[in-house]
Design a protein around this nucleic acid. Structure first.
Lengths: 223, 223, 223, 223
DNA sequence: CATGAATGAGAGTTCATTCAT
DNA sequence: GATGAATGAACTCTCATTCAT
């Protein structure tokens, strides 16, 4: 990402903006402004939820008029796509962070899985984002490229768990199966927590998660 | 209201419509028509999804004008409520059916859980219905009574699993915990199956469910 | 209004319902039920106001279905017409009542005018009724006969004032002028009281009415 | 963004649109269009009356789609509010105009009151506007600020009468009382004129107003 | 007389998106 | 790049009235 400095090039010439330089500046500005729109979108979406989020409101908070947003994103769906992208980056950050001080493989598994669970437990709206966009295999109105990128980042977030399981002696296939199940369990717990079903049974999603994780570890170590 | 019995039949007398008879006929007609509306609603909803379902479209398919629906249901949400109600009845039917030929308690657990899982796997829209209405503990625009009824029926569908677990020696509290986890796992698997995440990992929700169930049984029997 | 008893007529004959008798009975029943509808209409209208009054709600309170009301009144407007008719009867009753113990002509004027004012001050909805129906000279959807009857009863309620003024020496023309002005003043005060304009000026409609009446009396007696 | 000042004028240079100029032009255009909507609204309202005035019809006449009106006004009530605002401005204009050539205080009172009366007599729909919005102290869906502004302008229109009465020796409190009564009388006369009640009594609202005013003047001067 | 299902017209409002400027 | 006016389609819901039964 860093750019090599050019030590000497036309030192006497007045600093004329070249095409590339100007383009770069522009792109940077555009990026900053796009980020501004995303910030607004996130704030709206986190405050009002998916259904009540409107282009108008996002524009208002970003200090733009509705039409302006279409310079940055081709549709509402793409804004959500970008938000989801950011969300997945944050998720990966958390998971990586959690791994730093994990001595054993078992600790790595526990740390990564817990970070994953905690991320979505604490930020339920990030979960909503994913659900909104992944209704059926064809993610709403997104480009296949974006879709692939998002999928990859989701996988990435689960990779440490997979790695740990393998390191603990599991075959890759078995590890994948376990990771998928773990993922599903987490999602299930959180969805049901959101919709109040877990409270209905007098349970706590956290305890249930811990129990699942403990069982998983036991299973792995038993082999 | 009681009617004198006529010892000797008057076979020639024409069958006089009593009040109750007429009322009954009417109620049946009304029920039929309400069911017609629900059929239309279900078809719209299953085809277009919750978000794109509109009163207009339901009415169109039912052969009514939009306003007419309001004779049958006081609001759009109530139509969903009725749909969900039916769905839960079907779910309970399946679960009960599955229990009929289950000799052992372990079989009962397996049968009930599998029926539950299969119901939603095969009818993914029924799962959507529940999600739409249970956004947060306060189901959209439903009366608390209806809400309670729906919750109860959901619980009912899981009761056999709970019973089986207890019969196998679990405490009630532990059984509840396991049932909740089972429920969450099923929901997680199905939600992720819907959204293509499971295929993404090259897995099958059915196999994952079987594995979860097997583990659960092993855990129970180990005690 | 009383009905002559028929001392002896066919004492031996079995009491066969004649056409007229049956019709009479029917009419009475119809009247009773019509009154029931009006009671319901009044209660709705007084509670919810003109705008929120609906045929449905009236029917509901009267224990009928909407369609049934059309047996009694050809339109919503006619129900209002009937309500206004009743209202004017009550108004006349009050005015007549007030006159009973009025010794002098001045007292009669004061009593009648005050009764009129008080009636509408205390029952603001009765005023609304009149306004709703008399939008422009063509009273909404009423028959000319009903309209004339209503106008007559309104006049009747003001007649005592007119009479008193004449008895105090005014010409009929002058008395009419004064009565009209008095009526207008009352209506103005009440309308403005309704809409909060009088409070806005820190005044009370009652005091203003008293002042107007005092001035009127002074003017009459000065002649 | 700053532009180097050119000491020597380039008289041939074309007039460059500055930001402010463009903004101004835009605002003017917007104002014109808003006025267009108001014109349409007024025409609908004056033709069909308040109750039958719909956003759709206003839009149709203004050459817009319904949704477009919401760029100009946040709700139907706000359109009425704007209409009433204009109306009150016109009223105040008339009153001020009438005061110009009034030599004495008595003339001022007469001129102001007559202008007020005449305004509403000649433009009965302006009176309706006020009534629609001031149903109860809380003008429908208006902001408190707009409400206050409207109230103030109404008061303003009556202020000259108040001032004249004071100048003629009345206390402020007494003047307020008289102005309120005058206002009520005018409203009463006009309302009853509208609804045909005054014609019913063979009277003319104008003569009755003159008589009231004459009496008021007499009372003031008698003191 | 009464029902109650149904009509049909219409209400106000919202919103993603477009596009001339 | 940004504006903001405008579209056009859609939304849920309400209501007086009608009419076969």
């Amino acid at each position: 990402m860093s750019r090599m400095p050019l030590p000497e090039k036309k030192p006497s010439a007045p600093p004329i903006s070249t095409h590339t330089q100007r383009d770069e500046r522009r792109r940077k500005l555009a990026d900053v402004r796009q980020e501004l729109v995303l910030d607004a979108a996130r704030s709206v979406f986190f405050e009002l939820g998916m259904e009540k989020t409107s282009i108008r409101e996002i524009a208002r908070r970003a200090g733009y008029t509705p039409g302006a947003l279409y310079s940055y994103f081709p549709s509402k769906e793409h804004i959500y796509g970008a938000l989801l992208g950011e969300s997945l980056e944050r998720l990966n950050d958390r998971v990586q962070q959690a791994l730093i001080d994990a001595p054993s493989e078992a600790d790595r598994l526990r740390a990564a899985a817990t970070a994953f669970f905690e991320f979505y437990r604490a930020n339920s709206h990030d979960l909503d984002l994913g659900f909104y966009l992944f209704q059926g295999m064809a993610p709403r109105g997104l480009t296949p490229e974006l879709n692939t990128r998002l999928n990859t980042r989701l996988r990435d977030a689960l990779l440490p768990c997979h790695g740990a399981l393998q390191s603990m002696g599991m075959s890759s296939a078995a590890a994948t199966r376990e990771v998928t199940a773990l993922f599903a369990h987490i999602v299930g717990l959180l969805v049901m927590s959101h919709t109040g079903r877990i409270r209905m049974f007098g349970q706590s999603s956290q305890e249930l998660f811990d129990a699942y994780l403990a069982n998983l570890l036991k299973r792995v170590q038993a082999k």
